[in-house]
Amino acid sequence: MAHARRSYARLLATHAVLLFYTLISIGPIVLIAMNSIKSRSAIFSAPLAWPSPSTVDFSGYAALVEDGSFAGYFLNSTVVTVTALIAVIVFGAMAAFALSEYRFKLNALTGLYFAIGIMIPIRLGTVGILEMLVAAHLANTLTGLILVYTAQGLPLAIFILTEYMKTVSSDLKNAGRIDGLSEYRIFFWLVLPLLRPAMTTVAVFTMIPIWNDLWFPLILAPGEATKTVTLGAQIFLGQYETDWNAMLAVLTVGIVPIVALYLVLSRGLIRGIASGAIK
């Protein structure tokens, strides 16, 4: 009986901690969303209060519609994020396949080289990256941003996928070779479909930093035609006055893709982590 009580107490404490962490994580999102439909005075006088008929104000969302350029910012963010995400997953999986499947002299050194990319922030090389993009005539272009984000996401993707790739049965790959399949067909037809849990993990960990990033769009692509959502939101920040309704509306709209991604991929993310995608 005493053991059952202790087990129940530990279970209760665990759920209490998880509930507290959940509230801390979801709280800011809910706060931003509900204040985005409140009047300016209500935002500052009662930021924690739920919207009421007297405080409801959709002027922030109306400003986004009237501005007209926000749709372009959202499209730019979508194009950059999706393209970089596909490149990271495909090239990361190919590199992971080579590192886990083939044994060559510089195998361990190559893996270490990619791992260093996780430890060293890419922002330290901003000046050099900007110089390379200018020399390649890719500054102030979406292509330049896509290349930078691909390079940013590859080290972690290769690390995760390499560890997961080692769990794929060698008999399956050898059977494909006996049947005359090329290494490319073995990779794309046999191995890649088995990496879905790990690729889901990579997708989540890659998309969020890209979508939320302000640093590289501000420095590498600040032009009106290449602005992303995070950079475009700065138009509502004034030196003397800020349109908080529009700013909160932008943040709310910007949160939607991240939340939608998690809801769609959450089960695969948990499966990928539980299967040993991260070690």
Rank of each mutant, 00 (worst) to 15 (best):
V204S: 03
V229F: 02
P209Y: 10
A233M: 15
A225T: 14
W211F: 07
A203N: 08
W211N: 07
K227W: 02
I235H: 10
I235W: 06
M199Y: 00
L190N: 06
V229N: 00
P222H: 10
R196K: 15
Q234T: 15
P193A: 07
P222K: 08
F205Q: 08
P222N: 12
P197R: 06
S182K: 12
T200G: 09
L195T: 03
A203E: 06
L195N: 02
I208N: 05
V191G: 06
A221L: 13
W189A: 14
A225H: 10
P209M: 15
L214C: 05
P209R: 14
W189H: 11
L195I: 02
F205S: 08
A203Q: 05
I210A: 08
T230C: 01
W211I: 01
L220N: 01
L214R: 12
L214Q: 12
A203L: 07
M207H: 02
P193T: 03
M207Y: 09
V191E: 02
V229M: 12
P197D: 07
L195S: 03
L181I: 07
P193G: 04
L231F: 15
R196D: 03
A221W: 00
P217V: 05
P197F: 05
S182N: 10
W215S: 14
K227T: 01
G223P: 04
Q234Y: 13
P217E: 08
T228A: 06
A225M: 06
P217Q: 06
V191Y: 07
T201P: 00
W211V: 05
I235Q: 15
L190H: 07
P222T: 07
R196V: 10
M207I: 13
M199V: 04
E183W: 13
F205N: 08
L231R: 05
A203T: 15
A221N: 09
W211A: 02
W211L: 09
L214E: 06
I186W: 09
A203Y: 02
L214V: 11
N212Q: 14
A225C: 02
G223N: 13
P197Q: 11
F205R: 03
T201E: 02
L190E: 11
R185L: 09
F188D: 00
G180N: 10
T230E: 04
W211G: 02
P193F: 04
L218P: 00
T200A: 11
A198R: 00
A203G: 13
F205K: 09
I235A: 08
E224V: 11
R196T: 11
W215Q: 13
M207G: 07
F205C: 08
G180Y: 09
A233E: 05
L231Y: 15
F216M: 14
A221M: 08
V202G: 00
N212D: 15
L194F: 01
A198I: 01
A198T: 02
T228Q: 10
F188K: 07
